[in-house]
Design a protein around this nucleic acid. Sequence first.
DNA 1: GTTGTAAATAGATGGCTGTCGATCTGGAGC
DNA 2: GCTCCAGATCGACAGCCATCTATTTACAAC
Lengths: 117, 117
Amino acid sequence: MAVDLELAPKTKRPAGEPCCEPVVYPDIDRERAARMAEVAKALGDPVRLQLVDVLRKHAGKVCVCELVPLFDISQPTLSHHLKKLRDAGIVDSERRGLWAYYYVLPDALQELTAWLS
Amino acid sequence: MAVDLELAPKTKRPAGEPCCEPVVYPDIDRERAARMAEVAKALGDPVRLQLVDVLRKHAGKVCVCELVPLFDISQPTLSHHLKKLRDAGIVDSERRGLWAYYYVLPDALQELTAWLS
DNA sequence: GTTGTAAATAGATGGCTGTCGATCTGGAGC
DNA sequence: GCTCCAGATCGACAGCCATCTATTTACAAC
């Protein structure tokens, strides 16, 4: 999508003054942007953001059966959101008997957090 | 989407051991989650994330004509991404003659950044 | 006026997303 | 074996998203 090091804008200028002096280029490469955008996208849903919030605030692993009644969505939809978070590398899960326990992967949000700060 | 204060999981337990002891509830309310999710969603695209990066690194306002050659997308698509960022309250723009200058709104990312940290 | 240019908008399209009900999976207990 | 339960997966559907080309808007210079 993005070109990494295209330094000079190639657009032709009219006879008048130029639009601007400084030459601007992206500081982050495509891969890093794609990685962080994937995390941000996973957080870009209110349910998933609250899920991460609950899992982060709660030390240890949280059973799915505790998460379901917190939201006004069906169990399959919640499972879908948890899968999205898992695919983005933000959470992971562990099965114990009938129940599944989810927890936040500590380093998952680090890159995005550092970039934002 | 999310219920704010549903404290006790209502699911029936089988005769065996319960899935977990602690009662979990969301710490952030629906409105705050929706606000932050909107910002995260706007950052959930590699082009937009790089756009914000360029605008943040560059002090002052950047002309659109400088942004276009940085990406492998058409000018209308870039304009669409800038509109998304503006709708999310992350950037704003100013028109000067033929050119449009975009800049980051400093407080826009603060709430999400604080939550992540 | 006409011409040229920067940026926004319109319209179309293929793909992805959030949601649901229904079903499947695999343990637990009998 | 059978039954019950938690959770994941399936299939469908409406809505949104990223992208394009084509057009429009608004300004500048002639």
